[in-house]
Amino acid sequence: MPGNPAPSIASLNTVLARASEVILGKERELRLALSCLLAGGHLLLEDLPGMGKTTLAQTLASLLGLDYARIQFTSDLLPADITGVSIFEREHGEFRFVPGPVFTQLLLADEINRATPKTQSALLEAMEEGQVTSEGMTRPLPRPFFVIATQNPSHQIGTFPLPESQLDRFLMRLSLGYPDPAAERALLAAGSRRAGARALPAVLHATDLPALQEAAAATHAAAPLIEYVQALLAATRHHPAFMHGLSPRAGLALLAAARAWAWLAGREMVIPDDIQAVFPALAGHRLRSAQGSGFASQEELAALLRTVPIP
């Protein structure tokens, strides 16, 4: 594609290339995950255990030069275990706030649906507000602040499925899935890359990221493209396969994600291909299927994309 790739795109492409060396055969998912972070959104990874969710989060944190913390969610995890607590210090005779793991730049919330709703919502508030309120004190979180949450498919035993309103806080939901045979062979031959993921040298510095996000958000979206987004939103609202359609906020999110995707592809404008590329990751956890209790399947979303004419 023509266009003038900004100098920073090269470094992002390096990030992608390096990440692909760790997470084999998942270029598309990596690209989506990176677009998600570029669009300033949080990412939800839904997969069975052992598919490389944690490795993905660690790899991205290392390559982007971000502070990284991980919380393993369990059913007895309390909100304070995330946000931090004030501890009385005898020598100073006062309370001192000990920040929880949420005070980081990239937080991996592992198996988020194992925790109780109360604990989940403590994290989700932090995601939405970018700050933590604890014992009457509001403390801002570091910038940038990303959450990569993982969850097991909700039909597994002992899970508390996230309510729709909280799912909406995640820009994208991705599923890595099984590796293809070639990637799996390479993985089996070389052993797990997880240990190496922590040790990857940073390609970017955390302070570079806001500028990159700004540049991505400035990608041009022409009137016909806005029209297309609108047509897609309208289609989800009238389609009999879905219980209810996408909200205007979801529309904004779609556009933001498509901008990041386009920018990452080196384009100066968003084209319908970009919308279609990010749409399934964006709509999958926001659209409920009309029958049953599950979310819309990838097939239903693909069918929707096939039928909505591009203006």
Binding site: P272, D273, I275, Q276, L304, T307, P309, I310
Partner: peptide
């Protein structure tokens, strides 16, 4: 197809 994007 009506919903087929140009690059596709």
């Amino acid at each position: 197809a009506p919903g087929e994007a140009p690059l596709q």
